[in-house]
Design a protein around this nucleic acid. Structure first.
Length: 235
DNA sequence: CCCTGATTCGC
DNA sequence: GCGAATCAGG
């Protein structure tokens, strides 16, 4: 493979945006391994790894094997000791919005499908996947102030934050459709139910638009579906 | 299982 | 230098 300046620039850019290596790989049409490998060689700042570095952990303890792997993987002895790297959740394409059911069915499927078609689903779809995967239904969020704007703004941000970063040549994605479009001219004033109807990205996609419950982004009907009680959390 | 990033090492 | 294979952890 040929790492052109252009490609490297793109990699850096996406890397800085905090996208996962796999995601970057998808967007650049390469494997995540290629991404990680290159990132390393480029000396790009490592992102919070899901794997905890044992080396740092023990240390004080007796000389534990730190690594008992095969001939491979014999790292385990470096540990910058900089444990303050808990950093934040980068990409975070949406882990805040309440579970939007429209896509939830395909939580796992959505991803695969998207990958397969190389289609970038609108933020909402991703949010759904993430939410479902992470733990599902987001509990009611009373802390959320205004009922309006919430989802809309979140998505708007996500959409705008996610730059095309690719020359249309390799992303056969529908033009970034602003969610706002469907909300620009509400039939009436005030907050409206943000429950998604239809497949995001398709022309007929829209939001419910009914009058939402106070403090919630959805109308009574949809709020009932959106806010599924996971389990009583008592202590 | 899915996912994540990190590392190794044959090429 | 590259990245598949593999690892380790959630």
């Amino acid at each position: 493979m040929e790492w052109t300046d252009e490609l490297i620039a793109r990699l850096k850019e996406l890397w800085e945006q905090g996208l996962s290596t796999a995601e970057i790989g998808r967007q650049l049409s390469i494997t995540k391994n290629a991404v990680v490998g290159k990132a390393h060689r480029l000396g790009l700042p490592p992102r919070p790894s899901p794997i905890r570095n044992k080396a740092a952990a023990e240390g004080a303890a007796s000389g534990k094997p730190a690594r008992s792997r095969t001939s491979r993987t014999r790292k385990a002895e470096e540990a910058p000791a900089e444990d303050g790297v808990k950093a934040e959740p980068p990409a975070a394409a949406g882990q805040k919005t309440a579970a939007p059911p429209t896509e939830k069915k395909a939580a796992g499927t959505a991803r695969a499908k998207a990958a397969a078609e190389k289609v970038e689903k609108p933020a909402r779809a991703k949010a759904a996947g993430t939410a479902a995967k992470t733990g599902g239904a987001v509990k009611d969020a009373p802390s959320r102030k205004a009922a309006d704007d919430v989802d809309v703004d979140d998505e708007a941000d996500l959409v705008s934050a996610r730059r095309p970063a690719a020359p249309a040549s390799q992303r056969k994605v529908a033009p970034p459709r602003r969610v706002r479009d469907t909300l620009d001219r509400p039939s009436r004033q005030g907050p409206t139910c943000q429950w998604p109807i239809g497949d995001p990205g398709t022309p007929d996609f829209h939001f419910c638009g009914a009058s939402p419950l106070s403090g919630k982004p959805y109308c009574a009907e949809h709020a009932a579906i959106a806010y599924v009680k996971i389990r009583d959390r008592r202590h």
